[in-house]
């Protein structure tokens, strides 16, 4: 389903974020990407839908080589790839329904989206998804009126309304409390299973990853250092991924936490980094 071949990414700053990544994700599999901050997890999943342009290598979704697509082709393939974000990335001043329907933007023309005249089938699906994630009572509320967990549910509904083949999930629980984190992870994996989607979840929390993923990929300094079942993740393996004492030092010495990566992503896209 998803195939990465020799994917590398070097930022204009000279930072080598990814080195020769080879990865194949079959249909219906939930893969958790783990690794220390700055290991390249965020960059990797953004390379898949080319929010970040990979420097080298090929990425295939089914029979399409994403890395070779033109702008238009890229927009078409992005419709098949749903994405869920750490900070939810909702448009706060739009209502829940508008946020969810924005998942259909790739399918409707500009005027339909401007006038909010989506096909009734899309609206039906949106209602169905909102019911599934338990937000049916919030349809016309503004997104900034919701709690963190509720916002993430809106984000999930938006991604699934795209009717994707593949789900990219970037730190879905980093801004949530432990209980909500589990609920969100369960929701994502259940929904993916119902629809037979391949999922790549990029996640900090190793126990949570082991609980919900069928496969774990460990990333360190831009390279895959573990690829196997959750049960195979021994203490020794974790040490290879995170480093025993590097764990803390890494975080301090390297400014490479998730924010720094996002900042680099912003630089790459030629946009200023707004304050969070």
């Amino acid at each position: 389903m998803l195939r990465l071949q020799h994917v590398s990414k070097r930022y204009p700053t000279g930072n080598q974020a990814l080195k020769e990544i080879n990865l194949t994700v079959p249909e219906g599999q939930v893969v958790a990407l783990i690794g220390p901050s700055g290991a390249g997890k965020s960059t990797l999943i953004r390379c898949v839908n080319r929010l970040v342009e990979p420097s080298e290598g090929q990425i295939w979704l089914r029979d399409t080589e994403i890395t070779r697509l033109s702008t238009r082709g890229l927009r078409h393939i992005r419709r098949r790839i749903g994405m869920i974000f750490q900070e939810y990335a909702l448009v706060e001043r739009l209502s829940v329904m508008e946020n969810v329907l924005s998942g259909r933007l790739g399918y409707v023309n500009f005027w339909q989206s401007w006038l909010r005249r989506y096909p009734q089938a899309d609206v039906d699906n949106a209602f169905q998804l909102l019911e599934r994630v338990g937000l049916l009572d919030f349809v016309d509320q503004r997104a900034d009126a919701l709690s963190g967990g509720q916002r993430q549910r809106v984000g999930i509904a938006r991604a699934l309304l795209q009717d994707p083949d593949l789900l990219l999930v970037d730190e879905p629980t980093a801004s949530l409390d432990p209980k909500t984190s589990r609920q969100i992870m369960r929701l994502i994996t259940e929904l993916a299973q119902e629809r037979g989607l391949a999922v790549v979840i990029n996640i900090h929390d190793v126990p949570l990853a082991q609980m919900y993923a069928q496969r774990i990929v460990g990333l360190r300094a831009g390279s895959v250092v573990y690829d196997g079942p959750p049960e195979g993740l021994t203490t020794a393996q974790l040490t290879t991924i995170y480093g025993e004492e590097d764990w803390d030092r890494n975080r301090q010495a390297d400014p490479a936490d998730e924010d720094a990566v996002l900042a680099m992503v912003a630089q790459d896209a030629g946009q200023p980094r707004p304050a969070l």
Binding site: S95, M97, E98, R116, Y118, Q120, V123, D124, A126, F127, Q128, E131, V139, D140
Partner: peptide, 11 residues
Amino acid sequence: PVATSRRWRKP
């Protein structure tokens, strides 16, 4: 029920 069509217009 889920099956029936629910209209939605931007308030």
